[in-house]
Write a protein that binds this DNA or RNA. Structure first.
Lengths: 337, 337
DNA sequence: CTGAAAGCGCTAACAG
DNA sequence: CTGTTAGCGCTTTCAG
């Protein structure tokens, strides 16, 4: 007993009209008389007619759908970005499809392929940390699909981007540590393959130099972007010959790992080791002590990215040069420093 | 310079074959000779052919896509459910579309309509707290679209469901409080319109009765499911004539609100007021003191719900009676009690 | 104002 | 083994 869904033909049949007439009436086309429009509309409601957007998309060669690829939705930075994107997309009649890469490059490539097959009109992406190459994204522009990166971007692909001021945020964080009197400041850095990893590390190095502090290579530990990576890096730092007085972590999940490992060693934050994160994830304000960190307005980033993408979609012919939007960051000082 | 995407016809033209032959070759149909298959496949790769799933779906009258409607993805209970759903959906060749209701019944109804228009094969939903009526979901089964509820379910719609043992979990939580010596146990209850609100409240009432403790109506405060609701309810409890010795909150976000309000009043948890949540959200283990709560295996719930849904989709004709799967809950005792 | 015809890209049934 | 034909549900163009 498969239920066949109602189509324009069904309603045309009952009304003894041609189905194209019905189609026009449903779309409020000026051709059609108010009377027939009314009859069509009321029968449509009565029969519970739902237009088939599959068919419409096929005909129109456009789906009014955008894809969003993020590493992990449970990271509340990304959840907030998604909400921002939805806000503007829905407001302009677009739908969204959210895809998680799980920080996995292969999964990411599969999502790209699926989104192309589903003929989305545009894609927003924040790159997985295991994606050393960005080649799998090139298919998008090649297929005429708009592409905007946010947060973790691919520098060697020439498209619009939205990023936080990663360099500036890192500078603020490190400056605050130095001004608070910490001399031996270490950095748990993100993967060199990610833009945020590189830029935040540059900010760290730059600010130390500004303060004429010698860069100690043992104080820069490279790793991933998750909690576990913070644990591992901190273990290394705490077992080295000179223990740092303060740690600047590439992001809040990593800072959380550091936090746990520092506590596990029965050390006091900030007396023994001060700690700064990046991202202002919800969790950070609940730690004991609450974490000093850098906000990066994820909701605004999401809205900005969606607006850029829709602009590209709506005038796809224009070859405007690509834009990079940088959103402000701000240091939030709490008790961990 | 709109880029037209490659179709079967393009590759057929270059190979001087009929496009249906190409279509079959692409799908590895036994009709086609290995030689032509090979030529087709390699040209497809060379031209960067991406099959148009829109067209395929239209023809097949099936999209291999399931929709998931959740209140808020930033709640990590739901993020974890989504991951579980994705795990099984991807494994069986299905795609997912994640929709947030933002706890808003109207938004939820819009999502339902959009999903129907997009002809998804099935929908998974956890109901928004403002949805007092479930009527907007009835269109789904009526249109022949499979429907499975999880976590927050609609009891008056006859479909498959996956729920935690809400009653049992509440009983465990309250029993633990009583056994720990707390006599005056209050409950911050969820909306009566939600299944979790009702069932957890029943568990609370039941366990008090089991212990011959008089139910004090002033100790049951009804509210929503978010942090703010916990704040408001706690304010009420703390300003009443008799202050409770312990609070059982309907879920972790509400418990978090309670936690904040208790601390704001400079009261000690658990000495002045003990606190139990429900859900084991990530945050709960980081509070000070860490929160005693009830786990409900969100990842497993997601997998179970997806499996039930796919089973319905794959044998849509069979009118098997609807199933309700109950997943175990377990009390996690931390320092807040 | 309404109807007819064509086509979006694909698959399925049937013919050669 | 390959080709032909028809059609999924809709929109668009052109006739009536």
């Amino acid at each position: 007993m498969t239920v066949r869904q109602i189509t324009v033909k069904d309603i045309a049949g009952k009304l003894r009209l041609h189905y194209t007439t019905v189609s026009k009436a449903l779309r409020d086309h000026p051709d059609i008389s108010p009377d027939t429009k009314h009859r069509v509309l009321s029968l449509a409601k009565e029969l519970d007619y739902h237009p088939n957007s599959i068919a419409k998309s096929l005909k129109k060669q456009a789906t009014s759908t955008i894809g969003i690829i993020v590493p992990l939705i449970k990271n509340d930075f990304f959840s907030a970005v998604i909400s921002g994107v939805e806000e503007v997309a829905y407001g302009r009649g677009f739908n969204t499809v959210v895809c998680q890469s799980n920080e996995n490059s292969d999964r990411e490539a599969i999502h790209v392929r699926t989104l192309i097959s589903n003929r989305v009109d545009g894609v927003l992406v924040s790159v997985a940390q295991t994606s050393t190459s960005c080649d799998h994204f090139r298919a998008l522009p090649k297929q005429g699909i708009a592409l905007v990166f946010f947060d973790r971007v691919c520098e060697d692909i020439n498209t619009d981007k939205v990023v936080a001021d990663d360099f500036g945020g890192a500078v603020q964080a490190v400056r605050h540590l130095i001004q608070s009197g910490y001399k031996k400041v270490a950095h748990i850095a993100g993967p060199k393959s990610t833009s945020i990893g590189r830029d935040r590390c540059k900010g760290y190095v730059n600010e130390l130099k500004q303060n004429k502090i010698q860069i100690n290579p043992e104080f820069i530990i490279y790793g991933g972007l998750q909690e576990d990576d913070g644990v591992v890096a901190t273990r290394k730092l705490l077992s080295s010959s000179t223990i740092p007085e303060a740690i600047f972590a590439v992001n809040d999940p990593v800072a959380l790992g550091a936090y746990k490992e520092i506590k596990r060693n029965a050390l006091n934050i900030p007396k023994d080791v001060a700690l700064v994160g990046f991202g202002n994830n919800t969790l950070s304000s609940y730690l004991d002590p609450p974490l000093t960190t850098v906000t990066q307005s994820p909701y605004e980033q999401g809205k900005a990215a969606a607006n850029m993408l829709l602009k590209r979609i709506e005038n796809s012919q224009s070859g405007n040069p690509s834009e990079v939007k940088v959103v402000e960051t701000k240091l939030i000082i709490r008790k961990s420093t």
